[in-house]
């Protein structure tokens, strides 16, 4: 056969076709925590995008809720090997936020309240692939799951879906984030098992 392994074709879990390789199905919603949970009041919440030229745009909670809202159903995959299928979220597409942004940057560094960061290429944030979400299963997103709002990038391992998100820093070069500087993969595609760099 060819030199391209089945892993590059979207290899599936033999026992459950909905699961990427090495994953198992979780019925609950595990809480992973690498530090204290920030408690951010919506009145104090702000999301901003800063471009590579230093120009910025920000939204407070009211402005964020005034943007077009989307309902998303997606499977999510944690690098610690659990997957949760068919999760329901509500929020704003990154495409909507980027309507007001001029940039030629290829990468973003996602910043969260509490200091967490993760790097995501813009190609993985745009084109209907990512959202800033504030509801889970029809209820406000609880703080242990990233409320008031978190990034949702369901086609990448869930460490990319930063909890307590507060902004995006757009960059020409890729800047590794919190887990990426600890040996985790820069991209994190679960279907290619991009766990470690």
């Amino acid at each position: 056969m060819g030199i391209i392994s089945s892993g590059f074709q979207g290899r599936r879990n033999r026992d459950d076709p909905g699961l990427p390789p090495g994953q198992h199905r979780a019925e609950d919603f595990p809480v992973l925590s690498a530090g204290p949970t920030p408690r951010i009041a919506r009145a104090d919440w702000e999301f901003r995008i800063v471009t590579e030229t230093g120009t910025s745009r920000h939204w407070d909670w009211a402005a964020f809720l005034a943007l077009p809202q989307e309902d998303i159903t997606a499977d999510i995959h944690c690098v610690t090997s659990w997957s949760k299928l068919g999760t329901h979220w509500r929020g704003v597409a990154l495409d909507t936020l980027f309507d007001q942004i001029e940039t030629t940057a290829r990468f973003s560094l996602v910043h969260s309240y509490g200091g967490y960061t993760t790097n995501v290429p813009l190609a993985d944030l745009l084109g209907g692939k990512a959202w800033i979400v504030h509801q889970f299963n029809g209820a406000d997103l609880p703080s242990e799951h990233g409320g008031p709002a978190r990034l949702l990038v369901p086609h990448l391992y869930f460490w990319k879906s930063a909890k307590w998100v507060r902004g995006l820093e757009l960059t020409g070069e890729e800047i590794p984030g919190f887990w990426e500087t600890n040996g985790y993969h820069a991209h994190g595609d679960p279907w290619r098992e991009e766990r470690y760099g």
């Binding site: 204290p36 920030p38 408690r39 951010i40 800063v50 910043h111 509490g114 960061t117």
Partner: peptide
């Protein structure tokens, strides 16, 4: 980026 990359301030959340 200033104001984003710092660690939580002493006495901050948690």
């Amino acid at each position: 980026m200033n104001g984003w990359t710092g660690r939580p301030a002493p006495g901050g959340p948690g």
